[in-house]
């Protein structure tokens, strides 16, 4: 058994959780919100022409692997990434890395991980976890969205790492090669925050950022003309992306508010402290929006859903959120 001095922790989101924990084990203590914020993680995208399980892609954060890439770019860590065309080679490499005493990040499907409850096993390929050891035929796994460490048989993890399709993990393994001892927060934080706010406000395509939220709101009104079952599933899908996928609540808005708060303390900035509070309010509004939808679909009759009211609520969320970024852009 290659158990180690690895210490698991419980996080809201998989990729930011993995990176926070991995950096902590390399001597750089960054909270999950800090990791999320430093990678310019907050986003919104509504991409009607990319379908997952028959539903359009709706994302409240940057692209998968965006956190790893963002950290490399913004704070100068160097990650080693391996992908494989052959599953057996991928497993052999993982075993070798574990024997060297490394903690290894891995991208997997959720569906094929036996320790996930069946109610949560969907075909989503962008999950992240840390393998920190091996006990005979089982890997010791730190899955950030689980309270405690878990175990998974070698064959099962191989299956989960080598599914094909949208966001196919291709057996992706990763670990830090270089981690800076400290970060020049005074320089980096304002830069990253400004850039992120800018991309939320000024992305030219009308499907990303705040205009993406508005595009989704316009789409909701049009649902009234669709088949009631589809309309109802569409609304449910929005809320699932916001709450069910480990977002820490309100589609990452609370994590980002926490990041703004932490940054405000580091930089001693009143603007950031106030923006954090404003972002918390935005998060609360997102949750009111989710509650409205849950109530609407609960009565099971698609026709009685007030699409206009739901759409208006979302438009007002978009306005509140835009206000926060307009302030942040001035930092």
């Amino acid at each position: 058994m290659t158990d180690t001095h690895f210490k698991h922790d419980h996080f809201a989101h998989c990729e930011s959780g993995v990176m926070s924990l991995m950096l902590r084990h390399h001597g750089l203590d960054l909270s999950e919100p800090m990791v999320f914020g430093l990678s310019a993680g907050i986003m919104f995208a509504y991409i009607p022409f990319v379908k997952l399980g028959g539903m359009p892609l709706i994302a409240y954060r940057n692209m998968p692997r965006g956190i790893i890439k963002g950290l490399q770019k913004n704070i100068g860590i160097k990650m080693k990434l391996h992908t494989f065309s052959n599953p057996e080679k991928g497993t052999a490499m993982l075993n070798t890395l574990l024997e060297q005493g490394k903690f290894v990040g891995a991208q997997t499907s959720v569906f094929w991980l036996p320790y996930f409850p069946p109610e949560m096993q969907f075909h989503f390929n962008g999950h992240n976890l840390i393998v920190y050891g091996r006990d005979k035929n089982e890997y010791l796994i730190s899955d950030p969205v689980f309270e405690n460490p878990v175990r998974c048989e070698i064959q099962d993890l191989q299956k989960a790492r080598f599914v094909k399709g949208v966001m196919a993990p291709k057996g992706l393994l990763y670990y830090p090669e270089f981690v800076p001892a400290e970060i020049d927060f005074e320089r980096v934080l304002p830069q990253v925050i400004r850039k992120n706010a800018k991309s939320m406000l000024k992305t030219p395509v009308p499907i990303a950022g705040v205009s993406g939220i508005r595009a989704l709101a316009r789409k909701i009104v049009k649902l009234a003309k669709k088949e009631p079952r589809y309309a109802s599933l569409f609304l449910g899908h929005i809320v699932r992306m916001q709450e069910e996928i480990g977002t820490g609540g309100a589609g990452f808005r609370f994590i980002y508010a926490s990041f703004l708060q932490e940054s405000g303390v580091i930089l001693n900035s009143q603007l950031l402290a106030e923006s954090s509070q404003a972002m918390t309010t935005v998060g609360d509004e997102w949750r009111e929006f989710a509650l409205m939808i849950a109530k609407a679909i609960r009565n099971k009759q698609g026709k009685s859903i007030d699409f206009k009211a739901i759409s208006d609520k979302l438009l007002s969320v978009a306005d509140s959120e835009a206000e926060v970024y307009k302030r942040l852009i001035q930092i």
């Binding site: 919100p33 969205v145 689980f146 820490g248 609540g249």
Partner: peptide, 24 residues
């Protein structure tokens, strides 16, 4: 909720003093 099958999720929330923390 039944869909968690006894699992818990980490949520970000503010304490009385306004500081963020995580709650299972």
């Amino acid at each position: 909720i039944s869909t968690y099958s006894g699992n818990k999720k980490a949520m970000y929330a503010t304490q009385e003093n306004g500081e963020y923390t995580t709650v299972a």
